[in-house]
């Protein structure tokens, strides 16, 4: 695997040099620069909808470029990148996993914060347990599902419990926010703590109940170019697009906050 990746990287590097060498003679113009190139973006699962939209706009603005998106939990992605996965850009759902990639020496420059996210209560549309506040989640008989403390949404939940002095007695601590949402959508749970963006993306399948305490646990999303990436310039362009006005418009539309 590894040698394969290295060979591919070497080929790509040779291609770049070929273009640079040719530039002196024939003029390698900007659109030609990007022709046939693939930008690989590793992004947190919660970014799926906005990044998919953004990637389409980016491909339109950079003819010939293909953006390959890989969505997974931030910690999975951080591990993959540390193990040499061929990513050009990494967008994490928390600063902790970005730091993990940083420790591996794979962050190019310094990461830029581009969005924030807070938790919300998601309940089935008919709200069977009549949840109205964060404290309602701790009421006996309410089947609440949360994220486990080991994952970012669970860490945020823990912070809220501490901040508000509430002790939740969940029926399940899931390892991803999508699993929490799934339990609410299927009606198994009376309520779940998910990100506002997850509740928004689920549409009418869940009802979101915002609560003021959520502001005490804000998740910040950083983005960076990966040091060993093949397409440094494209990666920089993509990060510009994410942090620029077009990107920010898409993120706000999906329910994200501005850092």
């Amino acid at each position: 695997m590894r040698p394969g990746i290295r060979a591919a990287a070497a080929l790509a590097a040779a291609g770049l040099m070929g273009c640079a060498a040719a530039a002196g003679l024939t003029g390698c113009t900007a659109p030609a620069r990007d022709a046939g190139k693939t930008l690989t973006v590793f992004a947190a699962a919660s970014l799926q909808a906005p990044f998919t939209a953004l990637a389409e706009e980016f491909e339109a603005a950079h003819p010939g470029t293909t953006v390959t998106l890989s969505f997974a939990g931030s910690s999975d992605l951080a591990t993959q990148i540390s193990q040499g996965a061929p990513a050009d850009v990494f967008a994490s759902a928390d600063t902790k996993n970005m730091a993990k990639v940083g420790e591996a020496g794979l962050v190019e420059g310094s990461p830029r914060d581009f969005a924030t996210n807070v938790l919300t209560i998601a309940v089935p549309p008919e709200n069977p347990a009549s949840i109205a506040t964060f404290a309602d989640l701790a009421k006996p008989g309410v089947r609440t599902v949360i994220c486990a403390e080991q994952v970012p949404c669970g860490a945020a939940t823990k912070t809220l419990e501490k901040e508000t002095g509430t002790t939740l007695m969940p029926v399940s601590e899931e390892s991803s926010v999508t699993d929490v949402l799934g339990k609410v959508v299927s009606g198994e749970a009376d309520a779940g703590l998910v990100y506002v963006t997850d509740a928004k993306a689920a549409g009418s399948k869940v009802q979101a109940i915002p609560f003021p305490e959520s502001a005490r646990a804000v998740n910040t999303y950083p983005i960076t170019a990966v040091r060993n990436g093949k397409n440094k310039e494209l990666a920089a362009d993509f990060i510009e697009a994410v942090t620029g006005p077009d990107g920010q418009r898409i993120f706000r539309g999906a329910g994200f906050g501005t850092p």
Binding site: V145, A148, P170, V171, S172, E173, E174, S175, D179, G182
Partner: peptide, 12 residues
């Protein structure tokens, strides 16, 4: 994971 959930001592 899909059906039972994940709680220490109960389903994990």
């Amino acid at each position: 994971l899909t059906f039972a959930g994940s709680l220490p001592g109960v389903t994990r």
